[in-house]
Nucleic acid binder design. Sequence first.
DNA 1: ATTGCGAATGACAGCGCTAACATATGGCGA
DNA 2: TCGCCATATGTTAGCGCTGTCATTCGCAAT
Lengths: 355, 355
Amino acid sequence: MLALSLWMRNLESCRFTATMGSELTETETSSDEVAPTLSAVAKRAGVSSITVSRVVRLPDLVAPETRARVEKAMRELGYVPNLVAGALASAKTNSVGVLVPTIANSIFADTVQGLSDKLEPLGYSVILAQSRYDAAREDRMLAALLSRRPEAIIMVGSPATEDGKRLLRHARIPIVETWELPIDPIDAVAGFDNYEAGAAVARHFIAQGRQHLAFIGGDDPRGTRRWLGFQDHALACGLHQPRRLILERNASGSVAAHANLPGVDAVFAANDAHAIGFMAGLRKAGLLRDGPAAAQPVAVVGLGDLEMGRLISPSLSTISVHGDAIGRTAATLTLERGGQRRIDLGFELVLRDSG
Amino acid sequence: MLALSLWMRNLESCRFTATMGSELTETETSSDEVAPTLSAVAKRAGVSSITVSRVVRLPDLVAPETRARVEKAMRELGYVPNLVAGALASAKTNSVGVLVPTIANSIFADTVQGLSDKLEPLGYSVILAQSRYDAAREDRMLAALLSRRPEAIIMVGSPATEDGKRLLRHARIPIVETWELPIDPIDAVAGFDNYEAGAAVARHFIAQGRQHLAFIGGDDPRGTRRWLGFQDHALACGLHQPRRLILERNASGSVAAHANLPGVDAVFAANDAHAIGFMAGLRKAGLLRDGPAAAQPVAVVGLGDLEMGRLISPSLSTISVHGDAIGRTAATLTLERGGQRRIDLGFELVLRDSG
DNA sequence: ATTGCGAATGACAGCGCTAACATATGGCGA
DNA sequence: TCGCCATATGTTAGCGCTGTCATTCGCAAT
């Protein structure tokens, strides 16, 4: 109470001293009705609310004894800062919006993990949204993210619509597009060249003497880029027109895929799950060997480098793409506005036994 | 301008009319410096800001012509509502905090997808945090989530520390613990009985005539519950003490695991990735058959029912756990405070060729 | 003695929005 | 004609913080 009255010296406003009484009572009955506020803590510690705010954000500016008193009050009241109010007052939300097509059973989860590992220790929160490969939902999610005023947006790919692009461009925050290298990026980019990845696989198949190539997977923008690189390179090398089989997103469909690809002797699957599903189909058809790639009647290469691909037999050849690094790099790009804004993380063709 | 002057009738405050001039200029030069606010839109549409607010949230309360005028102004200015301010004013953030141990390569991704599919269409945002199986980080993330004042918290498991539990209990919002059925839940639960899952696998192995059981996987709370059920049931049936091998979280370690389990003829892996890794090790050792479970020198059962388990050969027997349903159910539990607060989603022992 | 300065603390206004309560306006039945 | 209600819109007062200045106080430099 001594500290309190010392502090009261400075008060003039009747209104303020008047409400103080009632609020004190509230504090003393240890009301659990409402979450305690900064000023409740301030009152209890006998300081002004700005001092409590400093204890939370800039403790070095507060004298040790005062700080201790405030911290005690915070503990006693179970004070949890309200970042919503803080964000409004400071125009900083300390959050980033993350938009992925999907998070389940997907390699994008690595990217989300990577960026959140980088961002969370710095006090940023991740607001996650999924587009489910649906342009309309993507636009809605983008608008929803922006209305929470994130410090930056990280997304897999580029907005599917012009509306989405405009929304992001007008947001005046760092935007990072990932998993691609768009020609006209909105802002920053952390990805790799899907076209080149497709070409690299075609090159490999051709070097192996394969003749009849096929591509299986989705028709999303990245899958299509891979297909184009794959096809263009095959044609440029004088091969027959490669086949393309568009599959559902779940890998089960890929099991039956080889029935639709007669005569094909090399398959590039847009992701490892499809590749493994396809191999399951080959196995049933007696077209899979436990030997090395050269012994395979049908060569298979996936993309993503799932740990599982290493473990199965025959082990899966794949394009390894560092999803985690993409996430970390994207996080870095949101934090520093200057410097290199287009980072190609590359990929590696990892050759194992499947092709 | 007519609408504007009509509206000005109602103004008295000099200050307000004074600033109005400058703000109009700002609007007219189409300043992209600052994001337009509600009142900027209101000014342009010649209405009060509350009307704009209504157009956004309760359009039925606004006359069609007025609404059209406001919508036009919003479009022209590229208005994006500021949910941070809205949240502070209405004490509703329309967000839920989600805490998972990890999102990458993990079955929890299904749960996050499930809940976000349910929540996003309702206008809720998902704030995602990872504890990385670290109690201190979990507590920090919990505090960080709560300070954003989410409408609810959904987490995998229960808080590892008393501090964490207290934090959640004091938050006075729905809390959903998932993937377990804790004895003294904080609030709601959507999970399954990990102990019973372990027991079910042991029962199955015993029925199959297996004698020397082992458990491989992590020592997180859920893994340990599975182990206990597995062990207790084996002992109750008079088997030797089962072995337990604690592995790193990545599946690679499981490849070499069988070398440390001499004489073992049945293995329960805490997740499918470990199971598949373990099978890779068996294959190298010549202990894996492409035939049915009975033919396997070492039976293997996983947990999670990854799609991949169905595709590999021999196909993986597993405990299927409906991660997606857990997420959806958890979402439902955050929305309705009444009703059943403890939902057991169960599990299924799916028998295939591995064990 | 005066000035200046750094350290510690506080007052005040306002972030952009919404809840709660007015206030017009125009039928419409009594 | 007079309430009376429904519809459409507006005014006011914050939500719980933080930015931006004060202000106070001791103490060293002049």
